[in-house]
Design a protein around this nucleic acid. Sequence first.
DNA 1: GTCCCGCCTGACGCCACGTCAGGGTCAAGG
DNA 2: CCTTGACCCTGACGTGGCGTCAGGCGGGAC
Lengths: 250, 250
Amino acid sequence: MNVGEVAALAGVTVRTLHHYDRIGLLSPSGRTPSGYRQYGPSDLDRLHQVLLYRELGFPLEEVATLLDDPSADPETHLRRQHRMLRDRLERTSAMVAAVEKEMEARNMGISLTPEERFEVFGEQDPAQYDAEVSQRWGETDAYKQSKRKTAAYTKDDWVRIKAEGAQLEARFAAALRSGAAPDSDEAMDLAEEHRQSITRNYYDCPPEMHVGLGRMYVEDERFTAHYEKIAPGLARYVSTAVQANATRQG
Amino acid sequence: MNVGEVAALAGVTVRTLHHYDRIGLLSPSGRTPSGYRQYGPSDLDRLHQVLLYRELGFPLEEVATLLDDPSADPETHLRRQHRMLRDRLERTSAMVAAVEKEMEARNMGISLTPEERFEVFGEQDPAQYDAEVSQRWGETDAYKQSKRKTAAYTKDDWVRIKAEGAQLEARFAAALRSGAAPDSDEAMDLAEEHRQSITRNYYDCPPEMHVGLGRMYVEDERFTAHYEKIAPGLARYVSTAVQANATRQG
DNA sequence: GTCCCGCCTGACGCCACGTCAGGGTCAAGG
DNA sequence: CCTTGACCCTGACGTGGCGTCAGGCGGGAC
């Protein structure tokens, strides 16, 4: 793909891609003989990450160091992005609430105190995550070692986590074959186990979010295919069990 | 208040306030004999608006024209801010969902198409609101007249809307005095009427949001006072009725 | 009086691009 | 085969929204 196509796809300008090339943040993996930039799939991956981090307010230089850090795998980035996006969601809804409060106050002829109206503009600090951890732990050797260790851990655990997932899927399939209803205790318990394993291994996944994942298993053909390959009807079975489990909990 | 205090309150730097003064976006209403900037309550109001619009991505120059537009009263700004913040909320949760999808995909060894991953970065365009209406209506005289008319309307209707609100509150008070339970049909109907009047006159207010407002009536002392002045116990009565109505609808 | 903090006004710097300028490239159509 | 128009290239300068000194005045606590 050449610049124009990538730009259109990603919703940025050509100039932006030129800029990212110049500062070494994202250089296309190839060039045509005539000098045209040629972007490959891996470049798109990287661009995606760049745009996410940019959206989250990181300066480009920091984005580069984040993405070039060899001790940080894609999962690390996704988890960080997820956490920051959820923070932002919270902050935005606080602002929505503040504006609603102000509207209602005006509606009733009440006026709010300045402190109140400004409180939503408090600390945000985009780079607080690195800063925070550096401040708390210092850039000591212990901290660095722990960081390396965690990175190593993740790689070691990777196989185990994958196996754990596969085993759960197998147990789901067994339940399906045994004729247990998707809203039976057995299926719901499996769903709950699934949710908890996500929370343990990846990110905090409350039942509500879990239901969203479940929906995706039947709505997105590739996720569906993944389950159907294990046992026919499994995608819908898991999805229903997840939903039943969430209802049971709520 | 002098710069430092305002800066601390609003969570911005002194330099920022200097800048806003220089470009004429926010000049303090007074100066001490020695030249110190003196900010009054109205300056804080304006600063609040400025920060909201800035947060929403408007360039400062546009913020100035928005806030200096004599045909736009505070309610107009609040409604616009509210709408844009809700848009942003939607967009952010879409991004959260996208990241979750990606995590889940990786978890299952599925890879997403580039289009899919970039789709959340589609159009956003901060100034789309003005642009949109200008494009659709053109900067014609008809458009300008309609704009003036709406502004005039709002001012004319203001009295009616206020009266409508007061009347509703009186009917709530009557219901309370008559001994009707807050979750009686009578009270819930009043609550529904309240919600619909907000939707008609101010902003779209689904039951869920309405419950939030109701909570505020008992949690914020000034809102409570407003209702208690009409009839003792009215704040909690209205709040409960609103919640009952939302439950009935949901 | 003096010490220190806070305020003032320039003036320069920086980031993430936007916006020309001047010129090569590529594919479709005449 | 040549033109035409859309697309690409590399400088180079401009811009918005401040950050960051530098040099100097104001003010109140001791």
